[in-house]
């Protein structure tokens, strides 16, 4: 069974004159445990699509099945979301941020703490649990965000440009770290980015979206072996894949 199955999804924003088409005829099938990256020009509706997969927004047409069931509203047991930067609650410590989803469900304090400590350790932040977000670097904040997304152990993790605000070097490190975390947890990941290098480096499959109304105009299998290494970026295969995505995006914009 697919982890995520989107069928003929379309979305129209209500507007002054009839409405603005935002997404058109999107069909996606993601097998469990796969890492899928969506790229596309700004304003193509990638984030809208992700919000729909998370149950945070409703499509006008088509179906979304997540682990075999529709997702009319957020279900953190099935889907975890990692947002763009600055989505941590600044009044909570790193550990309290990670515990937040569990606290909402009334998980006992001790269980919560133990689980959050495990997640903190998984993302490589042992010993930083007591820090507040403003005491952490950009990369560390996003590690905490990932830990928060994983704390309820959902089979699917949605990531909306999580590393967009980081500098190039941190971004590469974080991509590498994400793959390490992914390989130990075996989640199904849908990841949105603007960076083509990031897309090729992370993905099993890259979906290229067109300009508004967003459609899927290309699906590219990334056959590079795993575990991925930084050296692969210098290879011909990597360059060709990156180039192909770039050509598609240029045509689409």
């Amino acid at each position: 069974m697919s982890a995520i199955a989107v069928e003929q999804l379309s979305h129209v924003y209500a507007g002054a004159e009839g409405g603005v088409p935002a997404l058109e005829d999107i069909t996606i099938d993601v097998d469990a445990g796969k890492f899928v990256v969506i790229v596309g020009p700004s304003g193509c509706g990638k984030t809208s699509l992700l919000m729909m997969l998370a149950g945070l927004r409703h499509q006008t047409q088509g179906t979304i099945l997540c682990a075999g069931k529709p997702i009319p509203e957020p279900d953190p047991e099935r889907v975890g979301v990692v947002f763009q930067e600055a989505s941590l609650f600044p009044w909570l410590t790193a550990l309290d941020n990670i515990e937040f989803p569990l606290a909402l469900r009334g998980t006992p304090r001790d269980d919560r703490r133990r689980r959050a400590e495990e997640m903190l350790s998984l993302v490589g932040l042992d010993g930083f649990g007591g820090r507040y977000p403003h005491e952490l670097s950009g990369g560390m904040k996003q590690r905490v965000s990932i830990a928060r997304g994983l704390v309820q152990d959902p089979p699917v993790l949605l990531m909306d440009e999580p590393f967009a605000a980081l500098d190039e070097q941190t971004r590469m490190t974080m991509g590498h770290e994400l793959l390490r975390i992914w390989s130990t947890t075996r989640k199904t990941v849908v990841f949105i980015t603007h960076s083509l290098t990031e897309a090729v480096y992370l993905a099993d499959e890259v979906l290229v979206m067109s300009d508004r109304p967003g459609r899927i105009i290309d699906r590219i299998e990334i056959s590079l072996p795993r575990p991925r290494t930084y050296e692969m970026m210098a290879t011909d295969t990597f360059g060709k894949l990156r180039e192909r995505i770039w050509q598609q995006i240029r045509k689409a914009a």
Partner: peptide, 19 residues
């Protein structure tokens, strides 16, 4: 953004208000 995050983790209206 913070409200959106809370909603994505299934927070109710009361929880969004209080937390």
């Amino acid at each position: 953004d913070h409200v959106l995050v809370a909603r994505s983790y299934g927070a109710t209206r009361t929880q969004i208000l209080l937390r």
